[in-house]
Computed example of a mutant assay.
Amino acid sequence: MRLTVTTWNINSVRLRIDLVLRFLAEHKPDVLCLQETKCPDDAFPLKALRGSGYENVVFAGQKGYNGVAILSRFPLHTRDVMGFCGRADARHISAVLGPEAGQAAGLALHNFYIPAGGDVPDRTLNDKFAHKLDFLQELRAWGGRRPSGPAILVGDLNVAPLEHDVWSHKQLLDVVSHTPIETQALETLRGEAGWIDAARRLMPEPEKIYTWWSYRSPDWNAADKGRRLDHAWVSPDLADTVRAVTVLREARGWERPSDHVPVTLALEL
């Protein structure tokens, strides 16, 4: 059985619902995990998404920012939402694929949106950066308690951890998302919990991988100053099932795009 799971920071699901529907129609992933949906639960475009063939949807949102959702062709069970840093912001949602998913039954899906951290990489000067570091620390503690069994963790983790996850390692060492304190925190929590970085398993360094290009660039494609902020990790028992990780770069050039593009993980179960 081939299972495909896509992660995409959509930067407002209502504003970009046409792009979501286009992606679902053209690429047909089994599961789509969205971040930064930016809408409260009562405004989530559930009817439109179910009309596209994804009847199984779980989501957690809030007005104007954050927000996560999982859309699936298969029934989803045991929906759960975790809070971090004593906040009820919508940055995590999880679900388990039901028995109808065949060989994928029981697989746990975790969808995260880690705080961006603002612009100043100093926790004493920037509360947003302090929040990000605290979030990563709590995520590290959670990762160590990850339940046994097959699991996938995806999302906009807002950290480009490796040298070739950014367009210029040297120039971005003091830029939020690639500072040593962030990259070490993310790689430490991943390694301690045993998560496998699926993209780097198939495309090891020094190959460049980007999933995000800033809106500030007048010509993002020509400048190509990207970063790999969107990730797909698998539990060790799924490592040998990873067949592909695809970055849909062309989506950055769609009309009124997100600054992130879809990243699709393919497993052979």
Rank of each mutant, 00 (worst) to 15 (best):
T211P: 02
Q62D: 04
A60I: 08
D259T: 07
N111K: 14
T179F: 08
R227V: 14
F59W: 09
G118M: 02
Y54F: 02
I93G: 06
R123M: 11
F23R: 02
A185E: 11
H77S: 09
L202Y: 07
E36S: 01
I10W: 00
E163Q: 08
K63F: 03
R200D: 01
L34N: 00
G64E: 00
H131S: 11
I17C: 00
I196Y: 15
L186F: 10
L139G: 05
L109P: 13
D156R: 08
N221S: 15
H77T: 07
R16M: 06
A105Q: 13
C33K: 00
F74Q: 14
P161F: 14
H169S: 07
D42L: 01
V20H: 05
I114W: 06
E36F: 03
A244P: 00
E26S: 15
R140A: 12
P45Q: 11
P204L: 05
G61T: 00
C85L: 10
E192H: 09
I152V: 04
G226T: 00
T37N: 01
N158H: 07
L186N: 13
R256V: 11
V20P: 08
R14K: 07
L238C: 03
L238T: 07
L157P: 03
I181F: 06
R140I: 13
A105K: 08
L24T: 03
P40Q: 03
A198D: 10
S235Y: 12
D259C: 07
R91P: 09
G102A: 08
V261G: 12
L15Y: 10
V245I: 11
P40W: 04
N158G: 15
V68N: 04
T179Q: 13
D42F: 02
L21C: 06
L19C: 05
G64K: 04
A95C: 12
R252G: 13
G61R: 11
G51T: 15
H231D: 00
A185I: 09
I17P: 06
R79C: 10
Y210E: 00
A101H: 11
F135C: 08
K63M: 04
T124C: 11
A88T: 15
P257Q: 06
W142I: 04
H92D: 03
L46M: 02
L136Y: 15
V154F: 06
T78W: 15
K208V: 11
V234W: 03
R73L: 10
I93N: 03
C33P: 03
G194V: 14
L3K: 00
Q103Y: 05
L248S: 11
A95L: 14
C39E: 13
E205N: 06
G64M: 02
